[in-house]
């Protein structure tokens, strides 16, 4: 698992970095696609098909939307570049280095992936019946919609908020004359 995952994550990071640097927005978007689809592949490898499905469809749709927008507008990245960026890189690299060192020091104390520190799983899959108490065959659905349905209401609200925000910000006129 880790053998497949590591190159994938490196590829995703490279994709993200190059996407930032690409001069054409179209190639940036395609490179972002690498990140997104790489993420869904990572979900599949980590045995989370639900997430992988969502990630694939969302990624596809957002790629379509991005490309449609770029085709209609411009593919030139007009943001300022080449002006005093070296210190940013040094700072970012230093921060990343510190972060990675701290993380590798700290995460040594964490049990390895999938080890039974996840104590709730026992409760979700109740031992005396084949299925958990919600009666749903898909455990993920049971967790997100019943055990933690309140969270899902929050998540749906996040999406709702985002849409309301987009609709509010992209009004034609903001203030009354």
């Amino acid at each position: 698992m880790i053998i497949v995952l590591c190159p994938l994550i490196v590829l995703m990071i490279l994709g993200g970095v190059v996407a930032l640097e690409a001069t054409s927005l179209l190639s940036s978007v395609v490179l972002l696609g690498i990140v997104g689809f790489g993420l869904s592949a990572a979900f599949l490898i980590l045995q989370a098909p639900d997430l992988a499905i969502v990630q694939i469809v969302v990624e596809t749709l957002s790629l379509i939307i991005f490309i449609a927008v770029i085709l209609k507008t411009t593919s030139k990245d007009t943001s300022t570049r080449g002006r005093g960026r070296t210190p940013h890189y040094v700072m970012a690299a230093a921060f990343a280095l510190i972060f990675v060192l701290a993380a590798s020091w700290a995460l040594a104390s964490i049990p390895p992936f999938g080890m039974p520190s996840l104590r709730m799983a026992e409760a979700y899959l109740s031992p005396n019946s084949l299925l958990q108490p919600t009666g749903a065959a898909n455990l993920v659905a049971a967790v997100i919609l019943d055990f933690r349905g309140y969270d899902t209401l929050g998540e749906a609200t996040v999406l709702f908020t985002a849409v309301m925000g987009v609709l509010a910000v992209l009004r034609k006129t903001g203030r009354k004359p």
Binding site: T161, G165, V166, A168, V169, L170, T173, G174, R175
Partner: peptide, 12 residues
Amino acid sequence: IASYALVAFGTE
């Protein structure tokens, strides 16, 4: 997220 949108509510 709501606050991000509200900060930009004037759309200037």
